[in-house]
Simulated assay, not measured.
Amino acid sequence: MDYELLQKYNFAKIIVREFGFHHEIHWQSKVSFEDLDEETFLREFSWVVLSSGMKNTVIEKKFGPISNCFYEWKSASLIAKNCIKCFESAIQIFNNKAKINAIIDAATKISKQGFANIKKLIGKDPIHSLQKFKFIGPITVYHLAKNIGLDFAKPDRHLQRIASMHNYSSVQDFCRDISKHSGDSVPVVDIVFWRFATIEPDYVNVLYSLNITPNSPM
């Protein structure tokens, strides 16, 4: 990986921090799969399912009220036992039966199998195991994986465009190369470029035209 690409990453990171999103970088850097518990998994799973195909800002406004409908994700068994009540209250806030049912289905599955057993399966084969949950597909599985502390990047259109611009066919390889040289985790590299793309609509051209020399202050 060349010096220029690492400096482009550092530039994007500076912009993200200057726009007040340093807390997202901090959060992602602290997420650990080893420390993953049932509550965190349910919350992150639900976030990924609800945000699939939707703007992040929409889910941010609704996620608090939806969390209330599911007992703040405290217990899969509690959600499973009160699934009708959870569904009826949540559907009033977020009118998508398939997504709400996917959350209830996940809670029921965890309640039956035990979170420790499910976590063990995820640890052994994360991408395959996570896709056994409803609404977790070939793209969203990486979103969920990184949000629960696994070393993956989400290959969304923003990262794919940035990686391709730098002659990478794989988003994972692109983020891992930057991770090795920057000291940041793969998920942190992901969130920096993703947030930069939401801040700067013309992010591809901005990164492409960035004039960087070895003495550039970054």
Results as ranks from 00 to 15, higher is better:
2 D>G: 03
3 Y>K: 12
6 L>H: 07
7 Q>V: 04
8 K>E: 11
9 Y>H: 04
10 N>A: 09
12 A>C: 04
14 I>Q: 11
15 I>H: 01
16 V>A: 04
18 E>R: 15
18 E>D: 15
18 E>L: 15
22 H>E: 14
22 H>D: 15
24 E>W: 06
25 I>Q: 03
26 H>T: 11
27 W>V: 11
27 W>I: 11
28 Q>Y: 09
29 S>M: 14
29 S>P: 15
29 S>K: 13
30 K>R: 11
30 K>T: 14
32 S>E: 03
33 F>P: 10
33 F>M: 09
34 E>A: 09
35 D>R: 07
36 L>M: 11
40 T>N: 10
42 L>R: 04
46 S>A: 08
48 V>C: 12
48 V>E: 03
49 V>A: 11
50 L>C: 10
51 S>T: 11
52 S>F: 11
52 S>W: 13
55 K>C: 13
57 T>V: 08
57 T>F: 06
57 T>D: 08
58 V>I: 12
58 V>C: 03
63 F>A: 10
63 F>N: 03
63 F>L: 10
64 G>L: 08
64 G>T: 09
67 S>K: 10
67 S>C: 10
70 F>L: 09
70 F>R: 04
70 F>S: 10
71 Y>G: 13
73 W>F: 09
74 K>H: 11
75 S>V: 00
76 A>H: 04
77 S>R: 03
85 K>I: 09
87 F>S: 12
90 A>C: 00
92 Q>W: 07
92 Q>H: 12
93 I>S: 09
93 I>Y: 11
95 N>L: 14
96 N>Y: 09
97 K>P: 12
99 K>S: 06
99 K>G: 04
100 I>W: 11
100 I>R: 04
102 A>T: 12
102 A>G: 11
103 I>Y: 06
104 I>R: 14
105 D>E: 15
107 A>V: 05
109 K>I: 10
110 I>A: 08
111 S>L: 04
111 S>K: 05
112 K>P: 13
117 N>I: 07
121 L>P: 11
124 K>E: 14
131 Q>G: 06
133 F>T: 05
134 K>A: 08
137 G>L: 12
138 P>D: 15
139 I>W: 13
140 T>A: 15
141 V>M: 07
142 Y>M: 09
143 H>W: 13
147 N>W: 01
150 L>R: 02
153 A>I: 06
154 K>L: 00
155 P>T: 01
162 I>H: 10
162 I>F: 12
171 V>E: 01
174 F>P: 01
174 F>V: 00
175 C>K: 00
176 R>A: 02
177 D>Q: 00
182 S>H: 08
182 S>P: 06
182 S>G: 06
183 G>M: 03
185 S>Y: 08
186 V>Y: 09
188 V>I: 05
188 V>T: 02
188 V>Y: 07
190 D>V: 02
193 F>W: 06
193 F>D: 01
196 F>W: 00
196 F>P: 05
196 F>S: 02
199 I>G: 00
200 E>I: 15
200 E>G: 04
201 P>E: 13
208 Y>R: 08
210 L>R: 03
210 L>S: 01
212 I>K: 03
213 T>R: 14
217 P>M: 14
